[in-house]
Each structure stands twice: as structure tokens, then as C-alpha cells.
Design a protein around this nucleic acid. Structure first.
Lengths: 232, 232
DNA sequence: AACGCTATTTATAACTC
DNA sequence: TGAGTTATAAATAGCGT
């Protein structure tokens, strides 16, 4: 009963422009038909020409339709090899890299375990499973360590002592020099009033003693220095 | 000038079966034409229906031809999201996983470094950079370890000693019993001829001694056991 | 939304240059 | 090889169901 006569011009089945079909129903029908047509053509091409063909279509609604003459993944991987920017197909490489990392981690875990066990033994923990021989070995190792540590400690102490002696000598010399100066001054100059003298004295002992001491001092030596200095 | 008349039947332009074209030239021509046809169709589909379309074609010679209505990579990634076995598009995940692994490795490296430094110090190596205080600490730790190790060693020795004493006692008892038996037998029985006696004697010392000793022995104790047994 | 029909447009097999 | 031609096969737009 020939409906749809309200359209101007082009009636019946005809050529269409290649631009988005605005009529939703019509568009969906066309989508369905042309999609299967595309896949058919893709298939024919793959068979006739012995080619590997894949077609991916996402409908406007987001649904996926696909054709592939062989495994899609294989084809996409193969595509990845051609595509200059790698984003697929480095997969096996990534996989290999991952495995390497995992191996590395494994090795490290083992190393840490070993170190921890040994460490614990050196700390005297977890000895329950050790044989007498093992204990003996550890004993020897620890004794050796102790010897080394103590000799090193002795070395350091000896060094410090040497430094201190040096400093003591310096200080003694300094003191001697100061006393001599003082004496000389007392002999050469007349006595000044008491009030003024106090001020001068305080100033001279702080600034006149030079800053040599504080510039070469370190915390530990200061403690030892106390003795010879206060003994004067 | 109408050539190519040498073919039987179906002349002129006609229908073809969908199966591999054997004639190489013909196949290549068809490949070229149909490929562009396919891409054209793909394009039309994408425009008419506002769909995302991609087509990948590998010629038999291995060359890649592709069409995509938008970036091929985007389409393939989108495909990856749909594809149940993820092999694309898990990329960001893989990336994250990789970074985690790397962090893990970093942490382990640091841990190993720390352990090694401490370990070396406990072994008396690399003490050059230690302050007196540090050395003192290590000294104390090592002494403590030594005490623990030695007390453990002492424990083990004590245990072994105890075991040995126990065994000695057992053996002494056994020997006593055997002697008594021997005495009893000599008193009760008449003397047998010498030749026969030798045979009997050899037999009785091997089988009559029971197998108790060998069944409860272990390697270390055997060594110590030698003494009291051979001294009889 | 899926199928069938068919007039028409398109794609293309075979051919030529 | 590649480009153009044409007769024919295939695809499909618009329609109905």
C-alpha cells in the first residue's frame, strides 16, 4: 500500500551519500547489513588471496564485532611488529623481562635468607640447629672478629692518646709563654687601679688566649683534656 | 582482438568460487582490488554508522595493509578490553606491576647492603669508618655472641658426655653379666676336646654377643666407645 | 530487531592497452 | 606492472512483514 510518499525527490531504492545516517533505525539496519558484508568480503579476500585478514568493528553503542581469518591475537601481534611504535608485540619481551626480574628477586631473597641466617648465628641467635662443628666454626670466627675489633679499637685509642699528648705539650708551652709574658709585663708596667685591672684581666684571658684551642678541638678529646689543664 | 579463447566453458566475466586463486598474477590483481574494496567498505561503514572500524590485511608476501577509522592503536587497545584473554591493554597494569617489582628489588638491594655492612662489621671487616663508640658497640655484641655460642657448645658437649656415660654404664653391666654367665657355664659343663672348643668359641663370641650395640650406636659415640671396650 | 524482497548501485573478473 | 573498460556478480537501500 505504498506509504512514505511524503518525501521529496529521490524515492525508492537509490544511491546514498556516504555520511552519517541520521535515522537511528535505518542506521542500525545498515550497520548490521554492511557489517556482515564487510566480514564476508574480508573472509573472501583471505581465502581467495591466501591472506591474513582481521576486521574490528565497534558499534556506536560500544559493542564489539570482529572477524579474523586466523587467531585475532596472532594477527594483532604481527601488526605490532610492523607498527613502528611498539605497543603490542613487545609482549614476549616484557614477559621475558618480567621473568628476569622475578629471578633476580628470587636470587635476592635467597641471598637475604642466607645473610640473615649467618648474621643471626653471628649474633648468637638460632643456634639450636647447629652441630658442634658448626658452633666451633662460629666460635673461631667470632673470636677472630673480636680480636680485629679490639685491635682496631686499640689503634684508635692510641691515636687519640697521641693527639692528646701533643695537645698537652702545646698547652704547656703556651702556658709557659703566657706566664713569661705576664711576668715581663708586671716588671715593665706600673700598677693600674684595681677596678680597671679586673676588666682588663677578664678581657685578656678570653681574647688574648688565641682561638687555637677551640678550632682544633673535638668533642671526645675535650673530656680528656680536662685533667691536665685543671691540674695546673 | 579477443584472445584467451583457450579456456573451456565459462567464458567472459563470471562468477568465481571462493577458494584460493592458483594463478599468481590473477591472485595478486584480485588481492589489490578486493583489498581496496574492503577498505572502502570499512570506511563507508564507519562513516554511515558512526562506528569505529579497523581492518588488517597481511598479503601472502607478508606485507601489511591496514585501514582504521581512527587510530589503530586505540582500536586495538579497545579490542583488548573486550577480549577475554587480555593480551593487549593490560599494558598499564603490566607497567604498574613492573614498577612494583622494581621497587621491591630496590628495597631488597638496600636491605642486602645494610645486612652486608653489618655482617662485615661483625666479621671484623670494613671497620675503618667506625667511631670508637661503634666499635665499642660491636665489641659488646660480639662478646655477647661469643658467650652464647660457647654456652651452647658447652650444653652440647655436656649432653654428649651424659650419653657416653650412660652407654659406658650399660656396657659395663653387660660385660659383668656375660662374665658371670661364662663362669656359670664353665662350672656346670665338662671340658670338651680342644679342636671342637675352638669352633664353638668362635661361634659364640660372634652370635652370642647380641646385636644391641650395633642397633643403638651412632657414628660419633662409636669413636669414644672404643676405649673402655678394648681395655678389658 | 530480524528477515525477505527487489530495484538499483557497487564491486569486481576478465579483458585490453 | 598498473590503469582503464565492461559485462556480470554481489551488495544493499528502501520497503514490507
Amino acid at each position: 500500500m505504498n506509504l512514505g510518499m511524503n518525501m521529496a525527490g529521490k524515492m525508492g531504492r537509490g544511491k546514498i551519500e556516504i555520511k552519517k545516517i541520521e535515522n537511528v533505525t535505518s542506521r542500525q539496519v545498515t550497520f548490521s547489513k554492511r557489517r556482515s558484508g564487510l566480514f564476508k568480503k574480508a573472509h573472501e579476500l583471505s581465502v581467495l588471496c591466501d591472506a591474513q585478514v582481521a576486521a574490528l568493528v565497534f558499534s556506536q553503542s560500544g559493542r564489539l564485532y570482529e572477524y579474523s581469518s586466523s587467531e585475532m591475537e596472532k594477527i594483532i601481534e604481527r601488526y605490532g611488529k610492523f607498527s613502528n611504535d611498539s605497543f603490542v608485540a613487545e609482549r614476549p619481551q616484557v614477559e621475558r623481562y618480567l621473568q628476569e626480574l622475578k629471578k633476580e628477586i628470587d636470587r635476592m631473597v635467597k641471598k637475604i635468607d642466607l645473610l640473615e641466617v649467618h648474621h643471626r648465628k653471628l649474633m648468637g641467635q638460632g643456634l639450636g640447629s647447629c652441630s658442634v662443628a658448626e658452633l666451633q666454626e662460629i666460635d673461631i670466627q667470632i673470636e677472630k672478629s673480636l680480636r680485629i675489633v679490639r685491635s682496631r679499637k686499640a689503634e684508635l685509642y692510641a691515636g687519640q692518646l697521641e693527639k692528646l699528648k701533643e695537645k698537652e705539650r702545646e698547652l704547656l708551652n703556651e702556658r709557659k709563654r703566657l706566664r713569661e709574658e705576664q711576668l715581663r709585663e708586671r716588671l715593665m708596667r706600673p700598677v693600674v687601679p684595681l677596678t680597671l685591672q679586673i676588666c682588663d684581666k677578664g678581657k685578656s684571658t678570653e681574647d688574648g688566649g688565641r682561638t687555637k684551642h677551640s678550632s682544633t678541638s673535638d668533642v671526645e678529646t675535650d673530656l680528656f683534656i680536662g685533667l691536665p689543664v685543671t691540674r695546673q
